[in-house]
């Protein structure tokens, strides 16, 4: 389905010196099977696809990792440090990921609370600083706090990734004002990561002017992940285009759309 609007020229979406066309990034976790995951990723139109670093299951070494299913030539694989609770762990995982992977990009997560999976900003900054010194391009998963976002940018992060709502919650964009403010104040790309539940959430998020969205559970936990991936692709494009088009002002009173002149007596 063609959805491109030729009348609108979007700026390129560039992170850490790499330019992408799709503003939707997707994760590869929690799918019922790899075949569904591959089809959903394809339907999403995403170019950046996240993966996690974990121990090889030594009892089933014949079961290949995710790279067996995703062509690294087709997708830009973005490793994460999901599950890490300290800066030290996150740095360790990032180094392993760089060794396993194909690029120097890492989606940095340092989790500060196990119930909400909210980020530990102090640990995040510490890990980001170390990794940036080692040449990593860090995309930092953070909360919707402007000051934290500014500090991460100052530290040299390639992108800042504020959450829409907690990971896997599907609660949607809880704080549009904060996300909008972060986007307005930062020079580096702002990619909303986590919490988007359905297409309207994605659309509303993109309408705030952010550069992109990363999502996983919204696709993986949908009844039909492939169809939801398609819906998200459209929603991200719609939201982005609406943002570029510029919405009408809100008014508290009605303004007629049809002329008042020419009415019959």
């Amino acid at each position: 389905m063609a959805t491109a609007v030729e009348t609108l020229r979007d700026t390129p979406f560039t992170i850490g010196g790499r330019t992408f066309h799709s503003r939707l990034m997707v994760g590869t976790g929690k799918y019922q099977d790899n075949e569904t995951m591959v089809r959903a990723v394809a339907a999403s139109g995403a170019e950046i696809v996240t993966v996690a670093v974990r121990r090889v299951d030594l009892d089933r070494t014949k079961r290949a990792g995710v790279l067996y299913h995703l062509d690294p030539k087709r997708y830009f694989l973005l490793a994460n440090t999901a599950g890490c609770a300290t800066a030290e762990d996150a740095v360790r995982y990032a180094r392993l990921a760089r060794e396993a992977g194909f690029n120097e990009f890492v989606k940095l997560e340092v989790i500060g609370d196990q119930e909400t999976l909210l980020p530990d900003v102090q640990g995040l900054l510490a890990a980001a600083t170390i990794l940036i010194r080692e040449g990593f391009k860090v995309l930092a998963y953070t909360n919707e706090d402007l000051v934290a976002a500014l500090r991460l940018e100052d530290a040299g992060c390639a992108a800042v990734m504020p959450l829409a709502s907690p990971i896997g919650s599907g609660l949607g964009l809880l704080n549009p004002y904060s996300v909008r403010t972060i986007k307005r104040r930062l020079q580096v790309p702002v990619v909303v990561d986590a919490g988007v539940g359905t297409a309207s959430d994605a659309c509303l998020t993109m309408e705030q002017g952010v550069d992109g969205i990363l999502m996983n559970t919204a696709l993986a936990a949908a009844r039909d992940p492939v169809a939801m991936a398609h819906a998200m692709r459209l929603a991200v494009e719609a939201g982005r285009t609406a943002y570029l088009a510029g919405r009408m002002p809100r008014r508290e009173v009605a303004v007629p759309s049809s002329p008042l002149e020419g009415m019959l007596d």
């Binding site: 994760g27 590869t28 090889v56 392993l96 990921a97 992977g101 896997g168």
Partner: peptide, 29 residues
């Protein structure tokens, strides 16, 4: 705790009590 790059794997011998981790990419968000 030290990453051993592929070309060096044949040079490093394990000793009693060593800790070896073997990792790869899995699905994740």
């Amino acid at each position: 705790r030290t990453i051993v790059r592929r070309p060096a794997l044949g040079d490093v011998r394990v000793a009693p009590g060593d800790a070896v981790e073997l990792v790869h990419f899995v699905g994740g968000g």
